[in-house]
């Protein structure tokens, strides 16, 4: 009984961690530029696919991981420069559609450059499950959770302690004022796309040994990451993390106890339920401001 609950919880947290990172990536770009980037899931796909193919080509795993992160970051910057920046003054809806177009292009390229097969990586610390109170836990799940926790901590530090992080926040708060204090806002936006792509890729790499990867894996991840974001509260990084973990838990617990056929539906039903009660999300900010 407990073992089963632990099992479902653990797999929920593992999946949820990936949603959380995708949601965090959404938040970083949304906060800096006001764009909801639906190509966010493709960064996760690129992270997994590039690592898989680099390893298959004989590149040692740590190097393959760095390569995948770099490729994703470059793709992120390219997406900003080629697709978002030229349409800077377009309305938010147009920008969202542009990112969806970007996602389709990236998926198409991945299909050509790589292939249409499912791929997996060996677990970083082996694939032998560890027994914990009767539940069998993959060591890779601990990599996912630990890696996510470290990424979240580093991203928080980046925004709280570094001048560049603060410049990203300043650009988000008031782009004109940021320009007037000397922030080069187009560089800042490129940095936020690169950062968001890099963390997405890391999540993709960490989770590939458990969930496999595929050129189309980004579609559902972008939707789930967005759901996590909305659930937690748009624009709040901690909200995205909380939303992601909750969504993962809902999904796996409902799949385990009720039916796995409807696990995607359960996740979205929970989201709709929360939004009916709290339209601004769980941690949605209601900052008191004087005008």
């Amino acid at each position: 009984m407990l073992a089963q609950f632990l099992q479902f919880t653990m797999s929920g947290l593992t999946v949820g961690a990936v949603y959380a990172v995708v949601g965090l990536g959404f938040t970083i770009i949304y906060n800096a530029s006001g764009v909801l980037n639906f190509a966010q899931g493709e960064f996760v796909m690129i992270g997994g696919m590039v690592t898989v193919f680099a390893v298959a080509a004989g590149v040692p795993l740590p190097l393959a991981i760095l390569l995948a992160i770099a490729v994703a970051a470059i793709v992120g910057i390219g997406l900003h420069r080629l697709a978002i920046e030229p349409a800077r003054d377009a309305s938010p809806v147009v920008l969202i559609i542009i990112t969806i177009g970007g996602a389709l292009v990236l998926r198409g390229i991945a299909q050509l450059v790589f292939d249409k097969q499912l791929h997996k990586l060996p677990g970083f610390s082996g694939d032998t499950p560890v027994n914990f109170l009767g539940a069998s836990i993959l060591p890779q799940a601990l990599w996912v959770l630990g890696g996510t926790a470290i990424m979240v901590a580093l991203v928080s530090l980046f925004f709280a302690k570094t001048m560049i992080g603060k410049a990203v926040l300043a650009t988000a708060a008031n782009r004109l004022a940021a320009q007037l204090v000397g922030v080069n806002t187009s560089v800042i936006l490129a940095i936020s796309f690169a950062l968001s792509a890099a963390i997405g890729a890391i999540a993709g790499i960490l989770v590939t040994p458990i969930t496999f990867t595929h050129y189309e894996v980004g579609t559902m991840l972008a939707l789930k990451g967005f759901a996590a974001l909305v659930l937690g509260g748009l624009g709040n990084p901690m909200g995205a993390i909380l939303g992601g973990l909750l969504l993962g838990l809902c999904e796996q617990l409902s799949a385990g106890y009720i039916s796995s056929t409807y696990k995607d539906a359960f996740a979205f039903i929970v989201m709709i339920g929360v939004l009916l009660v709290r339209p601004s999300g769980l941690l949605g900010s209601k900052l008191a401001e004087r005008v």
């Binding site: 926040l169 300043a170 004109l176 940021a178 007037l180 204090v181």
Partner: peptide, 13 residues
């Protein structure tokens, strides 16, 4: 360096 019309401070910061 400009102090813009309407202050334009970074409100959440």
């Amino acid at each position: 360096i400009q102090v813009p019309e309407g202050r334009q401070v970074f409100r959440p910061m």
